[in-house]
Design a protein around this nucleic acid. Structure first.
Lengths: 207, 207
DNA sequence: TTATAATACGAGCCATAGCTCGTATTTGAC
DNA sequence: GTCAAATACGAGCTATGGCTCGTATTATAA
């Protein structure tokens, strides 16, 4: 139990059937995490849910952590794709418009799979994947800072690093908290109101 | 393992020595959480660290979760004391001044015991103490909202609930993230700069 | 076809963690 | 001093989870 948390897959699947085994494992892990929570996600259960022998599981993933890490990576990729697209889209837009879009995207991104997102957010520290997630945070932060540099003339005089930190942290927290607080904050009207408020918060701050 | 997560202490200590046993257990739990993390905090280890028999531990706490919950409660009390004092202090101050002070206090509160704070923040979901912490969040939110009601004339027209949510969430996230990012963000100069920026963010938003 | 590699399987070993229960010791009331 | 209640103790039971390893099956290359 918790000896050396290796998180790298063990070997690369080369044949077709093995790749589908690997997929089944990752998907089963995600399903169990969502349905039953981290503590119930034993390797035996994961294998069973995936319809795969426990031995096969260990042929591809050296530990339970590695499987969860795979789920985290996949989820992060999904989110990062949305975020990247959004930044590309707003690159030449003025601040207020850009911020409004980014806020909306942040909420959307958190809604991709809220329940999975919640479980992962809670369990990331245990998987030793904190570093990855911080890297992911830094990426967003860097994208935002690049945007600010391109639009310096629209800003008041500021430390761009600080401004990016404050903006990204606030937007992320608002989206995260709103989504986790459940459906009350996610009715269509409520989302629009939240987007407006967050936009005012951040755009007002930057200008 | 994880059967019925009772979190209430089992019996009230009435004699002096038993009270010191209880204290020793809670303190040992906190120490181990900080030093070794949640997974290493087995009941046997906690008892050993406290210099107490495992049987005695179970005379006062029905489960490991109950012990962690006790630590959480204590930590929350510590923080809430600081927060309450701050709100009392700023009650009659104008917005900008009040926000500045509240931001500073938020950072201070997170620095009470950062390492413990981090571990607890990570492990709260598992302890079934989420409700308590949300209650604690709501308390802060209610205090802030009450402040806003008293100072409505200084605000632009807003939904007070929304304004409180946005303000509290942002301040909390900035303090939390800054503290967790480690010492870079916590040099005296950096703290002052962060306080100024956060104040501008929130005060600007409210007015 | 045959040989070798890749893939799949799952019974069961080992470690550990939570927790009980019978017993020993201390305290305090009378 | 005596006795009952409170407190303390820790060996060890039970459960469970991570993971190995010997074996069976399927794919591919020659």
């Amino acid at each position: 139990m918790a000896r050396k948390p290796l998180t790298k897959p063990r070997k690369n699947a080369s044949q077709e059937r093995s790749r589908s085994t690997v997929d089944a494992l990752v998907e089963a892990t995600a399903r169990i995490l969502v349905r039953d929570g981290f503590d119930k996600a034993s390797t035996n259960r994961i294998a069973e849910e995936a319809g795969v022998g426990i031995g096969s599981l260990y042929q591809y993933y050296p530990s339970k952590e590695a499987l969860v890490a795979a789920v985290i990576d996949r989820h992060n990729r999904d989110i990062m794709q949305v975020v990247n697209a959004a930044f590309a889209e707003v690159a030449s837009q003025p601040i207020e418009q850009a911020v409004r879009r980014l806020v909306a995207v942040a909420i959307e991104a958190h809604r991709i799979d809220p329940k999975l997102h919640r479980v992962l957010a809670e369990q990331i520290p245990r998987t030793g994947r904190l570093a990855d997630v911080e890297a992911f945070g830094r990426e967003t932060y860097a994208l935002f800072r690049a945007y600010l540099e391109d639009h310096r003339d629209e800003l008041r005089a500021v430390d761009l690093g600080m401004a990016a930190f404050v903006s990204v942290t606030s937007i992320e927290a608002l989206a995260h908290t709103a989504v986790l607080q459940g459906p009350e904050k996610l009715r269509d009207g409520a989302v629009r109101a939240l987007v407006e408020e967050a936009t005012r918060l951040v755009a007002g701050y930057l200008q």
